[in-house]
């Protein structure tokens, strides 16, 4: 178990190094001479993100599966709100709803709230203890399954289970 933990820790550091190197390469237009500064900058950035509590376990496969889901849903979100904005009758029925979070506090919750804001018809407005307050553009749609699906995706990315809760689904 301990070696497995160590291995996944090394993996996330490796992913971190790759991502920061890619960003440096992009920012400097692939200039080779800039790596004199780039390599120390990448090392420093990795060190800082570990100090700031980089999640030790992240599932790369879950991230890959999440990307098309996110693209499709946020595109639908844009189309949905654009249709309502252009529509002469302005078809909206806004309301606040409360979603009982099952995902643990910290980065997973922040990610969950931010993603919910980009999905069709939902806007995160507050987290109070275990309740995510969501403003919905049209309360005639049932958005609970959608939020549960996002939560499931985020939980898989951070390799964690969701605690069962009564009103969750």
């Amino acid at each position: 178990m301990r070696t497995k933990y160590l291995k996944t820790g090394m993996m996330s550091i490796l992913v971190c190094v790759i991502v920061f190197s890619l960003i440096w390469w992009i920012l400097t237009d692939g200039n080779i001479h800039s790596w004199w500064i780039g390599v120390p900058a990448v090392v420093l950035a990795v060190w800082v993100s570990i100090r700031l509590g980089l999640p030790v376990q992240m599932n790369g496969y879950a991230i890959l599966k999440f990307i098309p889901f996110f693209f499709m849903r946020s595109l639908l979100g844009g189309i949905d709100v654009a249709r309502r904005a252009y529509h002469p009758m302005l078809p909206i029925a806004p309301a606040f709803i409360e979603y009982p979070l099952r995902i643990p506090p910290g980065l997973p919750r922040v990610l969950m709230a931010n993603i919910a804001s980009l999905l069709p018809g939902t806007l995160s407005a507050g987290i109070n203890q275990d309740i995510l307050t969501v403003h919905v553009l049209d309360c005639r749609n049932d958005i609970y399954p959608e939020l549960a699906e996002v939560e499931q995706h985020v939980a898989r990315i951070f390799v964690m289970g969701l605690q069962a809760s009564e009103g969750g689904q």
Binding site: G77, G78, V81, A82, I92, S117, L118, G121, A125, H135
Partner: peptide, 17 residues
Amino acid sequence: FPDVYTRLHALTKADNV
């Protein structure tokens, strides 16, 4: 859109796409 919340819907989602 009529209030701050609904306007945020329009801004975040439509502009992001």
